[in-house]
């Protein structure tokens, strides 16, 4: 299955990854090659088979609702690239 350059650009945009033209071309080739190997999936009959999200699915796992200490604001911000007055600072999304 051959991906087009436009498709790869679209995927990169969805994934929010800035790529160079050279990277776009390399991933186009490599991802196309990998997708070719996926054809074998269609050889497995899955009629009436339900999907597995997790090997040994547990449902409605609960624990006692107890008050516990949470991280301090200092700890939360400790690794943040940009902070201001105890907040995370981000670029304006709407101008």
């Amino acid at each position: 299955m051959a991906l087009t350059t436009e498709e790869v650009r679209h995927i990169a945009k969805l994934a929010r990854i800035a790529l160079t033209d050279e990277e776009i071309e390399r991933y186009r080739e490599q991802l196309s090659g990998i997708l070719d190997h996926f054809e074998v999936l269609n050889e497995v009959d899955t009629e009436g088979v339900s999907p597995t999200a997790q090997a040994f699915a547990l449902s409605n796992v609960q624990r006692p609702d107890e008050v516990r200490p949470s991280l301090s604001p200092e700890d939360v911000l400790r690794n943040a690239p940009r902070t201001e007055d105890g907040y995370l600072r981000v670029r304006a999304v709407l101008e």
Binding site: A15, R16, A18, A80, V90
Partner: peptide, 24 residues
């Protein structure tokens, strides 16, 4: 995403540009 922790590009043209370059 360059906001909460980790490597960040901070001189981009916009929020989206910074995020994409951070990840790129």
């Amino acid at each position: 995403d360059g906001v909460k922790y980790g490597f960040a590009v901070t001189d981009g043209l916009s929020a989206e540009d910074e995020m994409a370059r951070t990840r790129g």
